[in-house]
Amino acid sequence: MFEQIVFYSFAAMLVFSASMVVSMRNPVHAALFLILAFFTSAALWLLLQAEFLAIVLVLVYVGAVMVLFLFVVMMLDINVTVIREGFARHLPVGIGVAIMMLLSMGLIVGSKQFQLVQPEDLNKFDPQFSNTQELGLALYTDYLYPFEIAGAILLVAIIAAISLTMRKPRTHKTPKPEKQVSVRSQDRVRIVKMESEK
């Protein structure tokens, strides 16, 4: 009973913040509502006893992705009125897509083809059970090989990004004291003999 109250309150908050994300006029506010949406969905993960996913969602999305997002939103001068143009014109298409997505989601959830796990089939674990530990065990034993390859892919991404964007270091015009003190007048001053003008 208590669980259901928690679920419905977080679910309501999630739906509310998600709808605010798309309807807010100020992009910064929209981004902040997106953060709220992430927090509430993390809470839903917790209810499913998937605490690792909940923590990661907050750490990665709120901690890293959203900060970057806010950065971009604040740096760019986004003209809201331009974005909102043609809202009414595109509304029918949007509603059509939304209905299609709802239908296909319903088809998949209701289909017998995929053996979807129903909520009542989920194992209930005692409080000592650590989801993080179980994931770690699976990741570093059964899935060690794919995990390592994923690591190599990330390394390649870093190498590629750096080698594609880094130009040669720019030659800064800074004074070099060690060269300044060793300068002799002969190096800098040239004495030219000229005919005196009459």
Binding site: Y143, Y145, P146, I149, A150, A152, I153, V156, A157, I159, A160, S163, L164
Partner: peptide, 21 residues
């Protein structure tokens, strides 16, 4: 299926970067 896909991505990502070099 997982390793096939990951190997393919490792190969492709390296190649994309090499083409753009």
């Amino acid at each position: 299926l997982l390793t096939i896909y990951l190997g393919l991505e490792l190969l492709s990502l390296s190649l994309y970067a090499m083409v753009a070099m």
